[in-house]
Design a protein around this nucleic acid. Structure first.
Length: 419
DNA sequence: CACCGTCAAGTCGCA
DNA sequence: TGCGACTTGACGGTG
């Protein structure tokens, strides 16, 4: 079983993607953007390898205007060396990649033009994955599309248009239930005709159920039948509702207790990959991996603690002390209590005294090496923050600059700087 | 450097 | 029939 995350990272330097608006489009601009984005993508892959994350969705935005007629660059050729290098890393580390065109790629539209663009977009996604030289278990996830006042016809159109796709594109397509129009029953039905694997999304099914009496595992077992040998392990999407936001909004982080409730219903099945859809991305991936791994070593939690500790200290000093105590027994693996305390701390409102205390802790790394003007600048900012003149972000930016300047590797990976 | 409107895509609900 | 909402992260212009 692999657990992974989608497209972007949180708190990993040099992993951002750039784009431009059509108005500023030019070939040289495009070359520059692609080159930058491929660097970022390789950094993400390196990060995933280092953190033992074996499942990752590639962003569609790596090649700006990837399927647009304005992009006539043979990027797969121009950057073939870069793709090979990344492909080797993916293959040799047993990483499974995937892509997921957005909600605007609609294969079943009654508008021919829209369908044409959808087909072009799927070709782009397939070409992108092909550039890594990976097999057909590396999938392209697609929703069914719109209804246009006649669901039956819309489904027929989806099937007809699916058959128009190239064999190589079809070999990667998998279909997913959505939160509005096509529930898991609909998607499984479509799969019966076109024999395409089905991804079960738990949150979509909760919002748009076929039969709300049926549990997640029921659907996962039915979907399992749609995955063949050449498709690799069955994949599912897992996410939780953000309680403060609109129905369907993904949560900030994956709540460990909720995830484990779900995980336990899977009856120990290991031939299943779980793609998390969550705002804190890689952070939740590491969390869920640590919660489900058979390799229960406290060193994994200690490593996590180096990343979370100042954020916890800033939000909840009590939790900070509790976690330190929790990690004292080196033969234990108190993973659930550990993440419960972290999640609890991060939910708390910022308290000005606690945040000043945490900033001073970080300052401790620099107090003996910083220049006098850096010292005065820090304390001046701290004073201004206390008076409400500047935000905490200013303080953190200042400390982040010092972290980089003085190469404080221990602080480099700290989530403290992700405001 | 912080802030915020804009961009890009297609569908659907509502005047 | 046409317009606004929906979604997302980055752009790009302003202060």
């Amino acid at each position: 079983m692999s657990i992974g995350y989608a497209c972007l990272t949180v708190g990993v330097p040099n992993t951002n993607f750039k784009s431009c608006i059509m108005k500023n489009f030019s070939e040289s601009k495009l070359l520059e953007l692609i080159s930058h984005n491929l660097n970022s993508l390789e950094n993400i892959i390196d990060y995933n390898i280092k953190n033992n994350i074996k499942l990752f969705r590639l962003s569609s935005d790596v090649i700006p205007f990837g399927s647009s007629p304005i992009n006539t660059l043979p990027w797969w050729d121009l950057f073939s060396n870069r793709f090979s290098a990344m492909g080797n890393k993916v293959n040799s580390n047993g990483i499974r990649i995937s892509m997921h065109p957005g909600q605007y790629t609609v294969l079943n539209s009654p508008n021919e033009d829209v369908v044409y663009r959808a087909i072009e977009d799927l070709k782009y996604h397939n070409r992108f994955l092909d550039s890594f030289d990976v097999g057909t278990q590396h999938k392209i996830v697609l929703h069914i599309g719109g209804i246009y006042n006649n669901k039956e016809e819309a489904i027929t159109r989806f099937i007809t248009n699916y058959y128009k796709l190239d064999e190589s594109v079809k070999s990667r397509i998998v279909i997913e239930n959505d939160d509005k129009l096509y529930n898991i029953g609909d998607v499984l039905d479509i799969s019966k005709t076109i024999k395409v694997p089905v991804i079960y999304d738990n949150l979509h099914s909760q919002i748009n159920p076929f039969d709300k009496e049926k549990k997640d595992f029921h659907w996962i077992e039915l979907c399992r039948e749609t995955w063949k040998e050449k498709d690799g392990f069955q994949k599912v999407h897992y996410s939780q509702q953000d309680v403060l936001k609109r129905i369907g909004s993904h949560s900030t982080t994956i709540n460990v207790n909720g995830f484990l409730d779900y995980y336990e219903t899977l009856e120990g099945r290991q031939d299943l990959d779980i793609m998390l859809e969550v705002k804190d991305k890689n952070l939740s991936a590491i969390k869920c991996i640590n919660c489900t791994t058979n390799n229960r070593k406290i060193s994994a939690l200690e490593l996590e603690w180096t990343r979370y500790k100042y954020l916890v200290l800033e939000k909840a000093p009590t939790n900070y002390l509790q976690i330190r105590k929790l990690l004292n027994d080196k033969d234990s693996y108190p993973v659930i209590s550990f993440y419960n305390l972290i999640e609890n701390a991060l939910q708390k409102e910022i308290n000005i005294n606690h945040s000043i205390n945490a900033a001073q802790h970080i300052w401790g790394y620099f107090k003996d090496i910083a220049l006098e003007k850096e010292r005065s600048s820090f304390f001046k900012s701290l004073e201004n923050y206390e008076k409400g003149k500047v935000t905490l972000k200013t303080i953190k930016n200042l400390l982040w600059k010092l972290t980089q300047k003085y190469n404080q590797t221990y602080l480099m990976d700290s989530y403290y700087f992700i405001v």
